[in-house]
Amino acid sequence: MILTDTHCHLYLDQFKDDLEDVLDRSSKEGITRIFLPAIDWNSIEQMVRLSHPEITFYKMAGIHPCSVEDNLPVDEEKLLEYCQSDEFVGVGETGLDYYWSTDFVDEQKKSLHMHCRVAKETGKPIVLHNRESTKDLLDLIEEEQDGSLTGVWHCFTGTEDEGKRALDLGLYLGVGGVSTFKNAGVDKTIAKMPMEKLILETDAPYLAPVPHRGKRNEPAFIKNIAENLAELKNLTLEEIAEKTTRNAFQLFGIQ
């Protein structure tokens, strides 16, 4: 059984003291494919250093909406150069975030438009961060969608209608730790979404699933998210592993 973590920030300082142990635990649990979205230019350089004999890492390039302020103007030519390389399988993470500040909303939108252009030009999926910005995010994706844009709503926490709209716009939905929080209501929405459009993610070190809620998240905890999804979908853990890994590989063009 092989599980896939499609969104993990292993290059962050939260892992600097025990990264080898974290990767060993991931491998032991069967999470041997880990996707690494960037948050800024520096993180791209940091992820290159990651290695483990049993794990395959898939890199992405992008500027997180919360990093836009510190990277103005966002360099489209630099992003395109990264994403044109076979070393990079996706564009992101990008998106909109109105939670921390709304001072740079226009700049975030310009950056997201730019990431969409790069995604369409390279034929690679876009990874979308969304926090308290759902309508604007989906409106912008609808504006950019010309039939060639693919991607994922990372850390999906939307309503059923918002989820269906995202699917209609060609997006997959990232199922993470929040789907295990019974008071969040996300589990009920995820249960209604089509299995062929769901992929698993941790967003480690953030948003650890039950029973690790409140602790540092790590790739090994994908198994907890997968077990919860299996219960929601009335499938076996093995079926969830097979289907979500297949979905991830289809989205990111992995053979």
Rank of each mutant, 00 (worst) to 15 (best):
residue 92 G to L: 06
residue 210 V to S: 09
residue 241 A to C: 05
residue 253 G to E: 12
residue 96 L to S: 03
residue 230 A to D: 11
residue 80 L to T: 07
residue 120 K to E: 14
residue 26 S to W: 00
residue 193 M to R: 04
residue 52 H to T: 13
residue 104 F to M: 12
residue 221 F to Q: 14
residue 163 G to K: 07
residue 50 L to R: 02
residue 158 G to Y: 10
residue 192 K to I: 03
residue 18 D to I: 09
residue 209 P to K: 03
residue 27 S to Y: 07
residue 60 M to P: 02
residue 246 R to T: 15
residue 34 I to D: 01
residue 181 F to W: 14
residue 71 N to Q: 07
residue 118 V to I: 12
residue 7 H to Q: 06
residue 86 D to P: 04
residue 205 P to V: 08
residue 148 S to L: 12
residue 162 E to Y: 09
residue 92 G to R: 04
residue 5 D to F: 03
residue 200 L to W: 02
residue 98 Y to P: 02
residue 117 R to G: 13
residue 193 M to S: 06
residue 149 L to D: 08
residue 61 A to N: 06
residue 117 R to A: 11
residue 10 L to F: 06
residue 255 Q to K: 15
residue 182 K to L: 15
residue 228 N to P: 00
residue 29 E to C: 01
residue 184 A to V: 03
residue 17 D to E: 15
residue 222 I to Y: 02
residue 181 F to H: 09
residue 69 E to H: 13
residue 196 E to I: 05
residue 49 R to N: 14
residue 133 S to R: 05
residue 243 K to L: 12
residue 24 D to Y: 02
residue 115 H to Q: 09
residue 60 M to C: 14
residue 130 N to W: 03
residue 82 Y to K: 04
residue 178 V to E: 10
residue 3 L to N: 04
residue 201 E to I: 04
residue 77 E to T: 14
residue 153 W to Q: 13
residue 193 M to H: 10
residue 153 W to R: 00
residue 222 I to Q: 01
residue 221 F to Y: 15
residue 203 D to W: 01
residue 99 Y to V: 12
residue 151 G to V: 13
residue 41 W to D: 13
residue 243 K to F: 05
residue 83 C to Q: 01
residue 242 E to C: 02
residue 164 K to G: 09
residue 150 T to Q: 10
residue 100 W to N: 08
residue 43 S to A: 03
residue 107 E to S: 11
residue 8 C to P: 04
residue 46 Q to V: 02
residue 187 D to A: 15
residue 113 H to T: 14
residue 110 K to H: 13
residue 34 I to A: 00
residue 62 G to N: 10
residue 185 G to E: 13
residue 174 G to E: 09
residue 178 V to R: 01
residue 53 P to I: 05
residue 235 L to V: 00
residue 89 V to Q: 05
residue 104 F to Y: 15
residue 20 E to C: 01
residue 186 V to N: 09
residue 167 L to F: 06
residue 103 D to V: 05
residue 139 D to T: 11
residue 68 V to E: 08
residue 29 E to L: 01
residue 24 D to S: 11
residue 7 H to N: 07
residue 82 Y to C: 11
residue 41 W to V: 15
residue 112 L to G: 03
residue 40 D to C: 08
residue 2 I to H: 13
residue 169 L to H: 04
residue 170 G to R: 04
residue 65 P to S: 11
residue 173 L to Q: 04
residue 70 D to G: 04
residue 155 C to M: 09
residue 113 H to D: 13
residue 37 P to E: 14
residue 229 L to A: 08
residue 4 T to D: 00
residue 173 L to H: 06
residue 117 R to Y: 09
residue 126 I to Q: 00
